[in-house]
């Protein structure tokens, strides 16, 4: 079951780097688990060892929305990266672009990837320097906005959007296609 996502208001933390790969998001030493939980403390583990790291700043505490650079989530397919982000508390990630597998993993774990234009991302990143800065991410309307007049439209993957809005059980849904699957198997031995 996917945790539904319709509309979320939350504090923003900025990580203005491009090509943040899943090895950074959740380093390999945390991949040995056999559960879906327990990954939050491993989030950006190596980077968090640096006191100057963005998420270690007081202003970033309690953030539920991450704004970051292009090609976020590139590299390994490890879904653990999304589990770690979700467990740490992030519900949405705003970036100019995402890696494909990461994107698919987000939709299946109640985390909304929001693709905005580079100048819009820059604006949110800049405002996130102010303590307590919040935005509203509305998946139904596909709009991101803040209290200072910023609004930006985004277009979410249609299937991913449906999964999130309705909190669907994807497997349960596909199992309803049983007759089509069986028919396919018969015609393709």
């Amino acid at each position: 079951m996917v945790k539904p996502f319709v509309r979320h208001r939350g504090k923003v933390a900025a990580l203005p780097r491009r090509d943040v790969d899943t090895d950074q998001i959740i380093p390999k030493q945390f991949l040995k688990g056999v559960e879906r939980t327990g990954f939050g403390s491993g989030l950006f583990f190596d980077w968090r060892a640096d006191p100057g790291f963005e998420l270690n700043q007081p202003a970033a505490q309690g953030a539920t929305i991450l704004v970051t650079g292009a090609n976020f989530g590139c590299g390994s397919s490890r879904e653990h990266a999304v589990w770690a982000l979700a467990e740490y508390g992030f519900r949405a990630i705003i970036a100019p672009s995402f890696a494909d597998i990461f994107l698919a993993n987000c939709f299946r774990n109640g985390v909304l990837p929001v693709k905005l234009a580079a100048n819009e991302v820059a604006m949110v990143t800049q405002r996130a320097q102010d303590a307590g800065y919040e935005v509203v991410v509305d998946l139904e309307q596909q709009v991101v906005s803040d209290d200072r007049g910023f609004t930006a439209r985004f277009s979410a993957d249609a299937y991913g959007r449906e999964l999130l809005l309705r909190g669907l059980d994807e497997i349960g849904r596909t199992l309803l296609e049983e007759p089509s699957i069986t028919a396919y198997e018969r015609s393709h031995p």
């Binding site: 397919s77 879904e79 999304v82 698919a104 993993n105 299946r108 994807e170 497997i171 596909t174």
Partner: peptide
Amino acid sequence: IGTSEVEH
């Protein structure tokens, strides 16, 4: 693919 898709 990710683990949720593996299960699927």
